[in-house]
Design a protein around this nucleic acid. Structure first.
Length: 496
RNA sequence: GGGUCGUUAGCUCAGCUGGUAGAGCACCGGGCUUUUAACCCGUUGGUCCUCGGUUCGAACCCGAGACGACCCA
């Protein structure tokens, strides 16, 4: 765990570094690479040994030494660059006595080097650079993890992600996929005339979600500020301002525990779409998942932790009450009976507050008994108004909201609704939240008078949605933990 | 917050019932001009996570703590 500075390996490599520093070109930056490994592998895949001998293709490659095989006066070195790997053949005849000796004396696995030469193919058929000139570009001090097993210790992989990236193609692949997902999401929304915006990360009043915030302090304003728990209320202010389609992909922060599904900072996509409602969102979300998966994976179906999921098919739809009937096995009348729900939750050792109405009781039951079972993509609709303080009230049933969440793999992936744009109703909901906060609910919302004022200037009929990007990346990269899709997940400071 | 498991060489891991700490890779020395985790020979390398306890004697047993993984709340 503790990588001390005085072990034999590091001491020897430091001695080599000292010798290298005595040369003229230690830490030179004038080596120019001509080709990437993968490009060479692809371009010359069809050329056999004889063809390459005839054509004398000159190249210059650079990268990290991953493997080194010394056989007396000839050696093979495997270089790794951003694209892939290529083998190089170094000989005393090819490099000259001094050059070959420098390689033998100074080069170690892990060093960053530049190699010039011509392409050849070995007897076993591997494309190889027959080296005529070598440059040591960075004499590294610390040894890489073991070449066969790599770096497997999860703690080390998260704390020293660079080593994980050097050693594990799977890790590199995950983060390439993450980048692709973000790219295609942006493309999807920009193509549909959504404007990408950035709204504040530091809020005087945290809002837009039920969560505990991180608190910080602005010195010169002498002001308590909160890291945002969601961008929602600012994005809707922009919709008031006439940006009728906006989206933001950025971090939010929630001061909660860590788990395989939660990191205190996480990435959300939120978008707001004027003159649309939650049913339009459900359609758009279905399109989005199908298109995204096809573009990123080349197909709409994939396997997540042993279960097949297909975003090419439209997700199921159930109301929250229906889902409790179906998955938890209660009758429709039981699900609507506050006393029954309260008693049943209590019997399940679930925390229940006396003030909770049927909406919060149903929500608690849903979270306890239903959510984890929703493996196949499923939209749960008709959330109770009691747990949806920013959502539009359902026209047919005022106790319900025009809101849905999407569940995949037993996890919430998206949350969307027709926006509440009645300022008086919103003020009433905020007052209710503030009351719950004063009664000790740490996740209840603050009264945001500034936001209500914005609504008084007029939010068009609008639908808005948030999509958890980390969880989406988990699905498409088959990652069991959110830490596997965050380059630097939060860790307690350790003595590493 | 609770439970289970883990922490031994730079890395991957063994280490029996408590009796002087082991292997492979890497490193160092030697051999080898088409290898593929190259191979062969010979070395080197340790805060056994930390602190305390039990014991003639602790990597191992007990207690407390640190860090991590997973599960639960």
């Amino acid at each position: 765990m503790n990588m001390s500075d005085d072990n034999d390996i590091i001491r020897t490599r430091r001695e080599k570094l000292s010798r290298w520093r005595e040369t003229d070109d230690a830490y030179a930056n004038d080596f120019r690479r001509q080709d990437l490994a993968a490009a060479l592998q692809e371009r010359y895949a069809g050329q056999d040994k004889a063809a390459l001998e005839d054509s004398l293709v000159a190249t210059a490659v650079a990268g990290r030494v991953m493997l080194k095989r010394v056989m007396g006066k000839a050696s093979f070195v495997t270089l790794s660059d951003v694209s892939g790997q290529i083998q190089c053949y170094l000989t005393r005849d090819g490099l000259g006595e001094a050059g070959y000796q420098e390689f033998k004396d100074l080069w170690d696995i892990g060093d960053i080097v530049g190699i010039e030469g011509t392409l050849m193919r070995t007897n076993k058929g591997e494309l190889t650079v027959a080296t005529s000139n070598i440059r040591l570009l960075n004499k590294t001090v610390r040894p890489l993890p073991e070449k066969w097993h790599g770096l497997t210790d999860t703690e080390a992989r998260y704390r020293r992600r660079y080593l994980d990236l050097i050693m594990n193609e799977e890790t590199r692949s995950t983060f390439r996929t993450r980048s692709q997902i973000l790219h295609h999401l942006r493309h999807f929304f920009v193509e549909r005339d959504f404007l990408e915006v950035e709204t504040p990360m530091m809020h005087a009043i945290p809002g837009g979600a039920a969560a505990r915030p991180f608190v910080t302090h602005h010195n010169s304003l002498d002001l308590e500020l909160y890291l945002r728990i969601a961008p929602e209320l600012y994005l809707k202010r922009l919709t008031v301002g006439g940006f009728e389609r906006v989206f933001e992909i950025n971090r939010s922060f929630r001061n909660e525990g860590l788990s395989t599904r939660h990191n205190p900072e996480f990435t959300m996509l939120e978008f707001y779409w004027a003159y649309a409602d939650y049913r339009d969102l459900i359609e758009l979300t279905g399109d989005l998942l199908a298109e995204l998966t096809t573009k990123v994976l080349g197909r709409s179906a994939f396997n997540y932790q042993g279960t097949d999921i297909d975003f090419g098919k439209r997700p199921l739809q159930l109301t929250m009450a229906e889902s409790i009937v179906v998955e938890a096995g209660f009758s429709e009348s039981q699900v609507e009976d506050p006393q029954f729900m309260r008693d049943t939750l209590a019997a399940m050792n679930q925390k229940v507050e006396a003030s909770w109405g049927i909406g919060r009781l149903q929500m608690a039951m849903f979270e306890a008994r239903v959510e984890e079972k929703l493996f196949a993509p499923t939209f749960i609709t008709h959330y109770p108004i009691e747990v949806s303080p920013l959502s539009r009230r359902n026209r047919d049933n005022p106790d319900l909201s025009d809101r849905f969440e999407l569940f995949v793999g037993g996890r919430e992936i998206a949350n969307g609704f027709s926006e509440l744009n009645d300022p008086d109703d919103q003020a009433e909901r905020f007052r209710d939240q503030a009351k719950q906060k004063s009664e000790g609910d740490l996740e209840a919302m603050h009264f945001d008078a500034d936001y209500v004022e914005a609504l008084e200037y007029g939010l068009p009929p609008t639908a808005g949605e948030g999509i958890g990007i980390d969880r989406l990346v988990m699905l498409l990269t088959n990652s069991p933990s959110i830490r596997d899709v965050l380059l630097f997940p939060l860790m307690r400071p350790g003595n590493v």
